[in-house]
Nucleic acid binder design. Sequence first.
DNA 1: CCCCAGTCCTGCGGGC
DNA 2: TGCCCGCAGGACTGGG
Length: 287
Amino acid sequence: MPELPEVETMRRGILGVVGGVIENVQRAKCKCKSILIHPRLDAFRRRAIGRTIRAVDRVGKRVILRLDGGDSIVFEPRMTGLVLVADPPSKEHLRLHIDVKGTNVGRISYWDRRGLGSVQLFVPREFEDRFGPSLLGPDALDVTPGELRKRFCNSRREIKVALLDQRAVAGIGNLYASEILHVAGIHPQRACNRLTLKQWESIHEAIRHVLQDAISHEGSTLSDGTYRNALNQAGGYQNHHRVYDRNGECCPNCDSKIQRIVQAQRSTFFCPTCQTKRGSGKKRTPR
DNA sequence: CCCCAGTCCTGCGGGC
DNA sequence: TGCCCGCAGGACTGGG
């Protein structure tokens, strides 16, 4: 499930399109229900074709093509979307092609098995409305310890649920929230307003550590095999998960068995010894 | 404002 | 063996 590290890996994988000119945009022949493409394809083509791609950015869990003239094409992969410059995992769930001339990369493809994602073209004003600071918090890799604490510390929400709120901090999803709290040694059900200054610093440090480590391994490809980088290669970070999807296995730091609980209808994994419900838990040195 | 539950979508695995 | 149902969770919406 693409979260910040996977989306950042996708972004880096398509950097070769920078400087290219969009030559065509076309829907792939896919029998599945159509994904959200905005605006309608004829308008999309009219506004995109002939534009130069000036940069490839990431905003939270989205990949952005910055076009000359100021418009942006936003790929939002959600659960199963992939932004590819190589052949897709299967022809079946290909959704859209953007053909590019003038670079080594001839085509960017958007593939999405479940089709919950989207490809949208926004003028600067629309982009600001959707991804401005009122709807999207600072990037998880840029947020300072002080900002992080300020954004959460008055909330009674459980810390794991709060970390998934993109308006507070952008980029963390269900998988990395569990990993981050294990590294920080904090119980996922602890209320934000009961965390100490020191614990906010631990969380901040753990966010950076886990996300950077995951990026260096090109993200996590889970057992369903869906996530791929832009070259359709699996990531490697799943082999470094401490707790995620390891219910009943041993904690990497102690002898305890990892537990699975459900918070906000999503799975959470944690170690009941390293992440105690009361008190701060034992601080562990990150790998 | 704050927070939660329901919704979308497809493939897969458990249960019978 | 085959069918059905529940589950996976990103972002959004509506309601309390």
